[in-house]
Amino acid sequence: MAGLHVRSVLVTGANRGIGLGLVQHFLEMPKLPTWVFAGCRDPKGQRAQELQNLASKHPNLVIVPLEVSDPASIKAAAARVGEQLGGSGLNLLINNAAMLICDTLENETLENMTQVYTTNTVGPLLVGQAFLPLLKKAAQGSPGSALSCSKAAIINVSSNGGSLSSPAGWHLLQGVSYRCSKAALNMLTKCQSLGYREHGILCVALHPGWVQTDMGSSVGHTPPVTVEASVRGMLKVLSSLGEKDAGTLLDWEGKVVPW
């Protein structure tokens, strides 16, 4: 991770699982970020207790109320982060917040599809829009430098479950709404990479693996990848990302995932 040096990073869905693991690792880096922003729905709730404990020990960790399905919450979070950053920009935005409903083709509903798509796909779109001015500002602070996560980047945490060419794990979980939302997130990443490249912002999707989190374990099987292994792998990948990776889907080991 020697190549990854960010002054500021925001992680959504940071109160548990992969999001919390990312925050913990950013706080342990040799080159500490000046600011680590942890977005979560209920910062004072019981499910954010571990995050609260971290914040009490790390003055550079700021917990930000952020519900990614609520435009007003997103706007308020962007204002809060901008205020904390002062005149500097945001180097790295990691859209990690997501939800899974274990549905099948037979019992899929309009309500489930809408809720999951809003959180997993529309949320990253709106968060990217709201934080774009701060990402642009960070990119402008490194004029002429190549695209990288150290300059300015949006990383969307996706899934190989959204792959059209190789829909992983169908025999274990149909998860129709989740798969559709992640397939759409992959296309959103491609669109963001095309639209934001001129501003010096790198946009990439990452598949974290099938990870031992509450979500990952909800299908009734023990996932093979630990949070520790997933997060360490993803951070190593982030350190090596460049223009050649814009708009692609990579896994936590840096392999290209067909989608």
Rank of each mutant, 00 (worst) to 15 (best):
L4M: 03
L4Y: 00
A14N: 01
N15H: 05
N15E: 02
I18C: 01
I18S: 00
I18Y: 00
G21H: 00
L22N: 00
V23G: 01
V23A: 03
H25T: 06
H25C: 09
E28N: 12
P30V: 12
P30Y: 00
G39K: 01
R41L: 09
P43I: 10
G45V: 11
Q49T: 15
Q52E: 11
N53V: 15
N53M: 13
S56K: 15
K57S: 15
K57T: 12
L61P: 08
L61S: 06
L61A: 08
V64R: 00
E67W: 03
V68E: 00
S69G: 13
S69I: 06
A72C: 06
I74Q: 01
I74P: 03
R80N: 09
R80H: 10
V81A: 05
E83P: 01
L85F: 01
G87E: 03
S88C: 02
S88K: 03
N91P: 03
N91G: 02
L92Q: 01
N95W: 05
N95Q: 09
A97R: 07
A98Y: 00
C102M: 06
T104M: 08
T104D: 04
L105V: 14
E106G: 08
N107G: 08
E108D: 09
E108V: 15
L110E: 08
N112Q: 09
T114M: 05
Q115A: 15
V116Q: 03
Y117T: 15
Y117H: 10
Y117A: 11
T118W: 00
T118L: 06
T119K: 08
N120V: 04
N120F: 04
T121D: 03
V122G: 04
P124C: 12
L126S: 06
V127S: 05
V127L: 10
G128S: 15
Q129L: 13
K136A: 10
A138F: 05
Q140S: 15
G141P: 01
A146F: 06
C149M: 05
S150Q: 07
S150G: 15
A152V: 08
A153F: 08
I154A: 01
S158R: 02
S159N: 08
G161R: 05
G161L: 12
G161K: 06
S165A: 12
S166M: 09
P167L: 05
W170I: 15
H171W: 13
Q174S: 15
C180T: 13
S181A: 14
S181W: 11
S181T: 12
L188A: 11
Q192D: 06
L202W: 04
L202M: 04
C203T: 02
A205F: 07
A205D: 11
H207Y: 13
P208A: 13
P208Q: 12
W210R: 03
Q212E: 12
Q212K: 14
T213S: 10
D214F: 08
M215Y: 10
M215N: 10
S217V: 12
S217K: 14
S218M: 14
G220M: 07
H221P: 02
H221G: 04
T222K: 15
T222L: 12
P224N: 13
V225H: 01
V225W: 05
T226Q: 07
V227H: 06
A229G: 05
R232E: 13
S239P: 06
S239G: 15
L241Y: 05
G242P: 10
D245S: 13
A246H: 06
T248P: 04
T248A: 12
D251P: 03
D251H: 02
E253G: 14
K255H: 15
K255M: 13
V256E: 12
P258S: 14
